[in-house]
Design a protein around this nucleic acid. Sequence first.
DNA 1: CCCTAAATGAAAACGATTTTCATTTTCAAA
DNA 2: TTTGAAAATGAAAATCGTTTTCATTTAGGG
Lengths: 150, 150
Amino acid sequence: MKEFLKTKGFKMTPQRELIFRSFFEMGEHVSVDELYDRVRREDNSVGYATVWRNLKLICRVGLAEEVNIGDGITRYDRVTKVPHGHLFCTECKSVIEFNVEQLVGVLAQKAGERGFTPDSFKIEVQGVCEGCRALKASGSNGHSEETGLP
Amino acid sequence: MKEFLKTKGFKMTPQRELIFRSFFEMGEHVSVDELYDRVRREDNSVGYATVWRNLKLICRVGLAEEVNIGDGITRYDRVTKVPHGHLFCTECKSVIEFNVEQLVGVLAQKAGERGFTPDSFKIEVQGVCEGCRALKASGSNGHSEETGLP
DNA sequence: CCCTAAATGAAAACGATTTTCATTTTCAAA
DNA sequence: TTTGAAAATGAAAATCGTTTTCATTTAGGG
Ligand SMILES: [Mn+2]
Ligand SMILES: [Mn+2]
Ligand SMILES: [Zn+2]
Ligand SMILES: [Zn+2]
């Protein structure tokens, strides 16, 4: 990793090493706050801005990308060899990943037909996961109508 | 429209009527600021919060939905009968819409296989549009490497 | 060891979104 | 038509995640 960054023209620091390591040890879809907390447990002198900047760096060198699931918080998702989409449960906020290799193929073609050169794809489905569906079906509550504004 | 809202339990006001009408007269992907400006031209006493709240209301009653193209500004997109995706040009910020009916079918199936019940789909492609591609090809500049952090 | 560019940490700045609150308006019931 | 409760509005302030600033420290090639 140190070498990898060096060839890209970046320096290695203890903070950076800790941040990178922590990020890759954590699960998918990590937010700045989550990574900051994690890093702090090991070294409580690391600044928030440093965590933020290094997360941006991880994206810049192509190891992750930002993902927005609509809750206003930017999360960082490791880049995987096979492209994946997200099933986002609006009830429990869980995220299920799924393979989108073929879909991306179709998309690339559609884009090409319009003279568009694709860089990256975002495929997300909002809905209700199996668990939450079961809960709702078992009539545990039944969410009253909720039509008024906040 | 007035009746439509009334059945949903909302009241009609001159501001609301103006805001709704303006929104549907504007193009796709309207931001709060854009709609606010437009509305103001007709009635400069309408407040920003009122525009914002009514945009949220339009979504709540299912006539539009929020869309984030990654520039930090929430835009509002009329809900169309046929689902569409977005080709987002990272150079000129233009947005091309395209039909995703079949894709959504595939997605729904994939989701179903995992016990997931889909509500809505988001299919976005980031890349470079035809025009911008041509400009870059004609070597007008050639973007130097850009590896450093901001 | 030195020097310069890069990196860091704390704090402030930013900026879109959302809420608060006093006031006005709608609309259905009387 | 009058009336009153609920909803809507406008101005301003609060929120809150993100990004920048700036003084200081550090990395690492020469
Ligand atoms: Mn993911
Ligand atoms: Mn659209
Ligand atoms: Zn769920
Ligand atoms: Zn373009």
